[in-house]
Design a binder for these strands. Sequence first.
DNA 1: ATACTAAGATAGTAATTAGTTACTATCTCT
DNA 2: AGAGATAGTAACTAATTACTATCTTAGTAT
Lengths: 202, 202
Amino acid sequence: MMPKTRLAAGERQLEIVRAVLTLAAENSPDAITTQAIAQQMGLTQGAVFRHFPTREAIWLAVVDWVEQNLGDVIAAAVAEAGDPLDGLGRLFAAHVAFIAAHPSAPRLIFNELQKPAAHPVKQRVCDLLDRYRRRVAELLAHAKAKALVEPELDEAAAATLFVGTVQGLVVQTLLAGDPQTLQPAARRLWPLYLRAIGVRQP
Amino acid sequence: MMPKTRLAAGERQLEIVRAVLTLAAENSPDAITTQAIAQQMGLTQGAVFRHFPTREAIWLAVVDWVEQNLGDVIAAAVAEAGDPLDGLGRLFAAHVAFIAAHPSAPRLIFNELQKPAAHPVKQRVCDLLDRYRRRVAELLAHAKAKALVEPELDEAAAATLFVGTVQGLVVQTLLAGDPQTLQPAARRLWPLYLRAIGVRQP
DNA sequence: ATACTAAGATAGTAATTAGTTACTATCTCT
DNA sequence: AGAGATAGTAACTAATTACTATCTTAGTAT
């Protein structure tokens, strides 16, 4: 955590992103200063700007990181699924696991979402979330086509509920202040979601 | 919105709270400065501190306002309900209507929720949200006792999903940037929630 | 070894922030 | 009408912020 050794630009950039994620676990994202980021890495504040031209660029990189890593996890989960419904379940589990591993990530995303519309970081987050919802809606449409769910299911609404279910868990974490409770809570929530979209359970 | 006239302390305090709510509709809560609040009311920055000893006190007042008004709306909705399930539906509708009328309110709440645990404003928000969830869980328990929902329903999980459903709508609003889309989306989401808790529909 | 490159340190700047102080204008109560 | 209380103003302050010069030094290729 206190490397006296110098790091190449690329590695240091990644470490800055990780530092932000770490700090966001305990502080509101907007309150994270470049000074705090530098301190987290054992560097001086000025050194941060050797790797990013501006503070905003850091946040864009963080969003990038989340987009990339969450995207990978999700893609892997869906890829190894048998049917669309199985894919949805794996997607949910993977997403929850990701949040449990990086609790600050969804908070960061949600925080950026609150910024003025013009803000470039918000644009990125909007795109990210919109793509995510579309992906869920797609899976639901496939499930419907295979008669795995309620035949008259409102996919768009069900996709919103999917995101909401995850958000509900995030709220739960923020209330409890303990990411440990996340996965058990998720396991209790999933059957409810399944019933919401009209899956017949054994 | 630009009163040259002096206001009594109580009224001005309320106007400051309203100003914050207005500003929070377009800016991230943390980014709202006392200067911006004063400007919104057509006063000087120093005048704000005539009515609140500190910035934090303002946010506590805002949470108070939300707690009071949302609480009233909710209590009224539940009071005029026939059975627990009807009460839950009215609670949902009332909550959504409140958000549509004050979109910044839930965002503010959620934002404060992200602060460090020690933060006094967060404590208040935690209590508020926890009470809310308990209330929902109570209604669900009553509904279960009257055999209106799935007899083996996990009430705690269903309460989390309730909060999540609302949060999903908030996310939807932030994405669309238009509170108008909220109520239609809510009407599409509610049947899904009802099915999730095992209500038999006509 | 030596010289080049780039990561980091040091020490700034200008702008913005919450909060204060001394004064003025307005309201209210008798 | 006059006096006390108080809402509001103007002009500060001290601290913090993102960001930037200039210098140092560590890693690397020759």
